[in-house]
């Protein structure tokens, strides 16, 4: 299961703060399969994964995206998220400790509010990119 460990606030307190997760274990993948209704056996059945030519089960891409969602809603209320999209870059193997991070890369005025474009990513501890994407979020004008 994942633990919450936070970096110290940076000099950009307005942006989202990295979310660091515990190394992924089989229990987490089984729980996520049940909770998400994604029962593809490549994520929960090692025998099936090996028959498919894979070394073992690997994490659902959507588990990483769910962590990214947590990363965003830890920062701003969910109702402010307008768009959220990712590309899954490489498989997340068992034992990987994921890190979610991102930063505001663009800001535009939108009906008296500010529409921020946030680049988001999930990496493993060594820095290898697993998931990359973008979210559009509305920030109050006086933030």
């Amino acid at each position: 299961m994942s633990r919450i460990e936070r970096d110290q606030p940076t000099d950009n307190p307005a942006g989202p703060q990295p979310l660091r997760l515990a190394p992924l274990d089989r229990t987490t993948l089984a729980l996520y399969a049940g909770a998400s209704s994604d029962h593809n056996p490549v994520h929960i059945d090692s025998d099936f994964a090996r028959r498919a030519g894979l070394p073992d089960v690997f994490a659902h891409g959507m588990l990483s995206m769910a962590y990214l969602g947590r990363f965003l809603t830890d920062w701003i209320p969910q109702s402010r998220i307008c768009r959220f999209g990712v590309r899954f870059v490489s498989r997340v193997e068992l034992g990987t400790a994921l890190v979610c991070s991102g930063e505001i890369v663009d800001m535009a005025e939108h009906d008296g509010e500010r529409l921020a474009r946030v680049e988001v990513r999930v990496t493993c501890q060594a820095g290898e990119l697993k998931v990359v994407g973008e979210a559009s979020v509305l920030l109050p004008a006086d933030d």
Binding site: H60, G61, M62, M65, I81, C82, R83, F84, G85, V86, R87, F88, G133
Partner: peptide, 8 residues
Amino acid sequence: HGEQSFVY
């Protein structure tokens, strides 16, 4: 799974 996006 290659990509996933949501427009809310």
